[in-house]
Amino acid sequence: MSNEAVFIYSDQLIKYRFSNDHPFNQTRVMLTYDLLKSLNALDDSQIIEPRIATDEELELVHDPQFIQAVKLAGEGKLPEETAQNYGIGTEDTPIFPGMHEASALLVGATLTAVDHVMSGKSKHALSLGGGLHHGFRGKASGFCIYNDSAVAIRYMQKKYNVRVLYVDTDAHHGDGVQWTFYDDPNVCTLSIHETGRYLFPGTGSVNERGAGKGYGYSFNIPVDAFTEDDSWIDAYTTAFKEVAEFFKPDVILTQNGVDSHYYDPLTHLSATMRIYREIPKLAHQLAHQYCDGRWIAVGGGGYDIWRVVPRAWSLIWLEMIEKSAIHGPLPQEWISKWQSKTSVTLPSNWDDEENIYPPIPRKVEIEEKNTLTVQKALYPIRSHNK
């Protein structure tokens, strides 16, 4: 028996946790899972337990010495100076116990999604614990230790011999994936992100087109700070359609960071929930048009974990199972269950209220220190109150 779509999930995914006050918080995966359960939109038969990626699989992208360093760090056995050389033990990517096992599980979850789609057990698969697109061959970066998407793409190439279109809609440039496949003509990367002039990692300009045989297979669309829905959707729709027509992929892998929303504390874009309806809708359409439906979706950024992430990520799953037209109030049982856990007021509705765009700031000051956690815009406090 096969499902049209499968949802990769385990409570163990929340073990990827840097600290209680770190902005990257995988509680958002649990919140999304619980919201879909409250809607009766996620059946137990659709839920697949992730496996842990093996060292051999991680080595498809990552240096063995880096993997060993991550293991030692998670055991408290890696000297601080050595850790810093590998990008761990930093402000953005601090060390935590069991970090190798937690990171390898996120990679394994994405590989579980890959195998279900590529073996024909399902057309679509969603692995919200993944999307850690800043990881490099020998270095962690920007909250990301292992790069699950890059490993998954190499895994698909090796095991299934396919051409992969990777589409990244995180507000931060998908640098780790792009550079991994920069000279590979069988992997096409498309990243739509806030311009690197203001935001980590500072890359993703339009002239990053690939190298050698891979020249012309890397596409970047940097958008300006405070870009709103209509402009964002137009750029996304035009680019994705044209790149898919050009590349004609065998499978589409989408990274679904949801930090372009105007509530997100780490970025400067002004999108609403509208774009998170359009993102999966077009991916679904093009997957059926070019790939016989083969579509793997992963998570990514998203730092307003209570108000934005569960709604936006739920819309991916609802699109996969063709229940995307859902509007109106959120389930009261979900709101009641989680409201006491947070100081922010949970949304009562699937869509943002009308006319709640923040005013264009009178002044934008962006700190120069090149880390995700400190790059913020200074603007008036935004509120739902009218």
Rank of each mutant, 00 (worst) to 15 (best):
E4N: 15
A5L: 04
F7V: 00
Q12G: 05
Y16Q: 04
R17T: 05
S19I: 13
F24D: 04
L31P: 00
D34P: 07
L35P: 01
S38L: 05
L39Q: 06
I47E: 01
R51I: 13
E59K: 08
L60Q: 00
P64K: 05
I67R: 11
G74C: 02
G76F: 02
K77L: 11
K77Q: 06
P79F: 02
P79I: 07
T82K: 06
D92Y: 02
T93G: 01
I95E: 00
E101D: 11
D115H: 06
K121F: 09
K123A: 09
G131L: 02
H134V: 00
H134Y: 10
G135A: 13
R137I: 01
G138V: 03
S141Q: 11
G142N: 03
N147E: 07
A150F: 03
K159F: 10
N161R: 12
Y166P: 10
H173N: 00
G174A: 01
G176M: 00
Q178C: 11
W179Q: 12
W179F: 15
L190T: 08
I192H: 09
Y198K: 04
G204Y: 06
V206I: 15
R209Y: 12
F219I: 07
N220A: 04
P222V: 10
P222R: 02
D224G: 11
F226E: 12
D229E: 10
T237F: 04
A239C: 05
A239H: 04
K241N: 09
E242H: 13
K248D: 04
H261F: 14
D264H: 03
P265I: 13
R274F: 04
I275Q: 02
I275L: 12
R277Y: 15
I279K: 08
L282F: 06
L282P: 15
Q289N: 09
V298W: 01
G299W: 08
G301V: 02
I305A: 05
W306I: 03
W306G: 01
R307C: 02
V309M: 06
P310Y: 07
W313S: 08
I316T: 13
M320T: 09
K323F: 07
S324K: 08
H327A: 14
G328D: 10
Q332W: 02
Q332N: 11
Q332L: 11
W334N: 06
S336T: 09
K337W: 08
K337R: 12
N349L: 07
D351N: 15
D351W: 13
D351P: 05
P361I: 01
K363L: 13
K363A: 07
L378R: 11
L378V: 15
